[in-house]
């Protein structure tokens, strides 16, 4: 096993850490950095519960990313989307639209929605649905999640304009 010294910026804070070669980003976040908001749902990149944002707001599966390859990277997790004590518009929209039930998929779903809107700020309903593929929710049937993303899109357009 090789060990790798990396600097990983999570939610704005730099962490200089030594990671084992076989540790995924998900394990390092949860076990080494004690940040359990990113979830293990399947470990195979199917469910999206482990999604985190890269600096360009694209979402990746942290369960299929080796931590050692992330030296110098900046990532954002669900708990890092809050600015001050103000929730990210996507998080607020999930609350307003009751788009959460058991909540286990939610951090990943929120992260995924932020990335979706970063790429396509005014998506159609169909684009939202396609964009949410890769994030599984077993509770909601997706209706309220789609509604929340639509609402967040409008809210973010409002603040930008």
């Amino acid at each position: 096993m090789s060990k790798h010294m990396i600097t990983l910026n999570v939610n704005g804070e730099d962490h200089d850490i030594v990671v084992a070669s076989n540790k995924t980003l998900l394990e390092v976040l949860r076990e080494q950095l004690n940040m359990p908001d990113t979830k293990y749902g399947c470990g195979t990149g199917e469910c999206g519960a482990c999604s985190v944002l890269l600096e360009d707001n694209s979402a990746i599966n942290s369960c299929l990313t080796l931590a050692a390859t992330m030296d110098g990277k900046k990532i954002t997790t669900a708990s890092g989307l809050e600015k001050g004590d103000k929730l990210h518009p996507v998080q607020q929209a999930f609350i307003d639209h009751a788009a959460v039930q058991c909540g286990f998929c939610t951090p990943g779903m929120v992260v995924k929605s932020v990335s979706l809107l970063a790429k396509n700020p005014r998506p159609t309903e169909q684009e939202i649905r396609e964009g949410l593929e890769g994030s599984i929710c077993r509770c909601t049937g997706y209706v309220k999640i789609v509604n929340a993303v639509e609402a967040a899109s409008k809210a973010m357009a409002g603040t930008a304009g």
Binding site: R30, P36, F94, I95, V100
Partner: peptide
Amino acid sequence: RVDIKAKVLGTAVYAAD
């Protein structure tokens, strides 16, 4: 919902946490 803020932030504590 009473539990929802912790869930959108990811701070809700599940057994694995």
